[in-house]
Design a protein around this nucleic acid. Structure first.
Length: 309
RNA sequence: GCCGCGGUAGCUCAGUCGGUAGAGCAGAGGACUGAAAAUCCUCGUGUCGGCAGUUCGAUUCUGCCCUGCGGCA
């Protein structure tokens, strides 16, 4: 008997947080965040992290669980989320995962088997130095010598994935590409999306608001507190651009425009992830969306699917 | 009204000494198994402002018209 699970995903700025909280209240359950940036403490404005008021008393898991200096990863998410899902199921609740990180959610639902070889190791640092010195294609050559099959699956310019593959290959393993035949959970997956023009308008407006609310000041605070600008959390959209602005490399307006563009591109990449997840039940949001109605519709489907009541 | 410079991809522009055109940006599609908001790959046909003339052939030359900007009245 598989454990039950409901997921609400969608590209950034489609209203997942709002709909998710309303849905969780209807379901009488708790939310597990499926977002790679909400895990970091101190990153609030730029990640659109729901505040106390927005959470409306609904318990949220996997938010603010990592220090900005720490590493977090898809594998860590998968493990921790799985544990909470089991606990909630045991307590008679159907857990609700809300978030947009494609790899996180897909790995959870489809049971990706991550290698036990840890990231952020001494080896990784060495590989980073090697890359600086000899360039990314040299990294590919190295991987090709150890594991030609792994090399074939990665483009010679793809630095991050090459470093990871080498890290694993040097430990005598291969990065898995295995596909499970079915979902790990008795899951019902909902997606929020919007017509491209509408989505981009929402993104542009939201980025504008973030800077008005003090995104630049938030990023500055992280730097002052000693977070190096290479830290994972400062690679997030809105943060990496602000680091450039604060160093005087670009103007504030350029910084805002770049953040908007990068967020638009990010939303597009998110949608690419979702296209490979045919089990998503899509709901369209528009300017005049009736959120109450939307949540009702989702809930109705959910009751039917799980034969509740 | 006259003079000058423009009108080419969604935007900014290049170019064709006459053989129907190409960069940057924007945008689109894709990959992804411990960085994933990361990282990487692929993709450029548009009445070359309109009409007419010269020409085998005009976006390119000529004329007229429309239109934007600047200057002079």
């Amino acid at each position: 008997m598989k454990e039950k699970l409901v997921v609400l995903l969608g590209p950034t700025a489609t209203g997942k947080t709002r709909a998710g909280v309303a849905l969780a209240k209807r379901m009488g359950t708790e939310i597990i965040s499926g977002d790679s940036m909400l895990v970091y403490k101190g990153l609030d404005i730029g990640t659109a992290k729901p505040n106390r008021e927005e959470r409306q008393g609904v318990k949220h898991h996997l938010i603010d669980i990592a220090d900005p200096l720490d590493d977090f990863s898809a594998a860590a998410f998968q493990q921790q989320a799985a544990k909470i899902i089991s606990e909630l199921n045991r307590a008679g609740k159907i857990p609700l995962v809300v978030g947009g990180t494609g790899l996180y959610i897909k790995s959870l639902l489809e049971g990706y088997i991550f290698s036990a070889v840890r990231g952020e190791s001494e080896v990784r640092r060495e590989l980073a130095v090697f890359t600086e010195k000899f360039g990314t294609p040299a990294l590919w050559e190295r991987l090709n010598k150890i594991n030609a099959e792994a090399a074939r699956a990665i483009h010679p310019n793809n630095r991050h994935r090459l470093i990871r593959a080498l890290e694993v290959a040097l430990a005598g393993e291969t990065v898995s590409r295995e596909k499970q035949p079915e979902l790990v959970y008795d899951a019902l997956v909902f997606g929020l999306t919007a017509e491209r023009g509408t989505l981009y308008e929402r993104i542009n407006d939201r980025v504008e608001e973030m800077f008005q609310e003090g995104l630049a000041e938030e990023a500055a605070r992280l730097l002052v507190n000693g977070i190096p600008k290479e830290a994972k959390c400062l690679q997030g959209i809105g943060y990496k651009e602000t680091v450039r602005y604060l160093s005087g490399e670009i103007s504030r307006q350029e910084c805002i425009n770049l953040t908007k563009r990068n967020t638009r591109r990010f939303a597009k990449r998110q949608l690419t992830w979702y296209r490979s997840m045919p089990y998503i039940n899509w709901f369209d949001v528009a300017k005049d969306t009736d959120w109450q109605q939307l949540v009702d519709d989702i809930y109705t489907k959910l009751v039917k699917n799980f034969k509740l009541r």
